[in-house]
Amino acid sequence: METIIKPENIVYGKPRLINNNPMHYCPGCSHGVVHNLVASVIDEMGLAEKTIGIAPVGCAVFAYKYLDIDWIEAAHGRAPAVATAVKRLNPDKMVFTYQGDGDLAAIGTGETIHACNRGENIVIVYVNNAIYGMTGGQMSPTTLVDMKTATCPYGRNVALNGYPLKITELLVPLEGTCLVAREAVHNVAAIKKAKKMLRKAFENAMAGKGTSIIEFVATCSAGWKMSAGQANNWMVENLFPAYPLGVLKDRV
């Protein structure tokens, strides 16, 4: 066994840009996998010294502690506005925002739509787990109809709370967006596919082709009150029909 453990035999290891700080995410949280993907894509593109990330408010608020790149922490929902300024002042840098559904699709809806409409050359990484995870599992704009959360214990009621907001679909007709895609990270095949899409988005931003938005349909095992494995299955059965995976727009 020891003969296999040699540096030249490594086929997978911790991405170089992920540092040794222990992540505060709950066990099995999709955020960790998305962090790993972002870190490995930035490293593979040789952009470690040229990337500026905009961290959100929400579970990923501490993203700046885990990836060894430059970060700015934005006010709640304002990451696309901050990214706009950073990219316009530093056009040679790679600028991306990392946001959840409570940040991007609730308080930050205006910033998201207008940044995309202006066609800012940024990447928006959007992690949608249909719940406010950080504050204890409250209903978010993307919570499914009849899905139970702390603030809708009998399930989301359309008459009272409206329908789940498919914000990614809303961004498709905007002329500023060049790539709109929805991915997931629940198994190895999906992760490899998502990584390719993320790389494409980062390349678009560097080439000045417009706004790229990659939505990750994700789990919140703590908020959904399931084990991580069960949460992945629940996501496949319930979230995927409402938020189907695939490329929604590819103008490149």
Partner: peptide
């Protein structure tokens, strides 16, 4: 069951905390 490992790295890809290093005999 260490004898059954095929070095596919599936565990590494899905690990949210990046704790797994996978080696494969070349």
């Amino acid at each position: 069951k260490p004898g059954d490992c095929i070095g596919c790295a599936g565990c590494g890809y899905v690990c949210p905390d990046a704790c797994i290093t996978v080696y494969k005999q070349k």
